[in-house]
Design a protein around this nucleic acid. Structure first.
Lengths: 230, 230
DNA sequence: GTCTACCAAATTGTTGACAATCTCCGGGCG
DNA sequence: CGCCCGGAGATTGTCAACAATTTGGTAGAC
């Protein structure tokens, strides 16, 4: 109550009483910057630069880099520094396939789990997705909606580890896993239909069907993306 | 003979050209110590203790802890320190299922990959496994041999990311994923047979069969382990 | 002209000291 | 008797300086 709500419009040098540690916020902001393409795959990440950018010393920056290294988001070679990880086409495809396998497992577990009324918000999001069939909606928005739905479905399976792992894997291959594939009205229609079938499979506890549909949803998008790339 | 591996008081000095960075060796040794059960799930990891143990200062120790945190091997809560991650039964099962899904994907890719004569060493290791059907061989040895075979099979699929990811996931749940299940002669026979079938499926490019067998091999062992635990 | 040795700048790796925070243990008070 | 308070010790978070290594360029020899 007597807590004065210090607003965070100031720079990050603001000394918050909160228990946030520098290394964590640095890692988080660095991830955002990479997602925002301010740093691109292959770009070098000099410790001093990052330290000045985030208003801390090199210690927390090094910790943040180590965290992101373990998530395969940055590459560190001893005595030569860090850089944003850049995946070959083969590795990117592999990452998407891993994501598909993990998501398929998640959908199996969701179908097997208890999920009383938890499917209602998912259905609401599906209706939002259905509205995006028209190509006037940018592919990125469509893609984001699918990610939202997938995460909501994963949530009802209560598989924390799986969710974070999937998030990490997707972070590494945004180029292919991203909205690249959703430029075709055909694919969007198929995708919308399969999402509906997936939700139904989860609701009616058909684990095998749910697993298959989840995998197909990912691999369809991958195939489409590969058709755009080369 | 020439080298006694116990005392390491001078190793940090100038044993070799400093190509290795402290944080990496600390992380590696800490992982070994955790695998060796010198630190057990839930045990606290004080930075100063680890620093003295490994002969470095707290900086590299903190970096190592961050690396292991991102791999879900240690848990760090701000201002309260690090501890070895301890999984609930549910989380451990989840980890094994994730491992099964990843390995199944790897076997699919192995079956689809080009693999001229690369299967010969795998077959040699299978013959070694076959010799271990007798229960006089400790379960741990049998388990280790299966891990070796699995890794060799993954190798021919050239899926680096998948291998490291699988390794990380397995590190987190050694209690269940370990040799717990292989105390039954029945299970060993089934396992040996399915490994042979798996190798054959990879050799004859039957991706679906390889994927199914890989999953079954993991889930059979999980089921057996769950039968021992409660 | 090309190759090698070597120096200087830049960058990473490591350390010890200092600051911030938490934990624990008594003592005072309702 | 139970609860709040406070301070000392322990532990983590952060920083700036120092050491080690790589890199890029330059001078010299052949």
């Amino acid at each position: 109550m007597a807590n004065s709500p210090n607003i965070a419009e100031d720079t990050m040098r603001e000394r918050r009483v909160g228990r946030r540690v520098s290394a964590e916020t640095v890692a988080e902001q660095l991830v955002q910057a990479i997602k925002r393409r301010e740093f691109r795959p292959g770009d070098r990440l000099r410790e001093q630069d990052l330290a000045e950018r985030f208003g801390v010393s090199r210690g927390p920056v090094r910790e943040a880099l180590r965290m992101l290294q373990s998530k395969s988001l940055v590459r560190i070679v001893p005595m030569r520094g860090a850089s944003v990880a850049s995946l070959s086409d083969r590795e990117a495809v592999e990452a998407v396939e891993i994501g598909a396998a993990l998501f398929a497992l998640g959908m199996r577990k969701a179908a097997e789990a208890e999920h009383e009324c938890a499917l209602e918000p998912v259905k609401a999001q599906w209706r939002a997705l259905e509205e995006m069939a028209d190509l006037s909606v940018p592919p990125k928005a469509f893609y984001r909606q699918t990610v939202l739905m997938g995460d909501a479905l994963l949530h009802i399976a209560t598989t924390q580890r799986l969710r974070t792992l999937l998030l990490d894997v997707r972070l590494g291959a945004p180029a292919i896993h991203g909205p690249l594939g959703f430029t075709s009205a055909e694919l969007r229609k198929t995708s919308i239909r399969k999402w509906a079938e997936l939700i139904d499979a989860v609701e009616t506890r058909q684990a095998d069907t749910a697993e298959r549909l989840a995998r197909e949803l990912h691999l369809d998008a991958l195939e489409a993306a590969l058709g755009v790339l080369p």
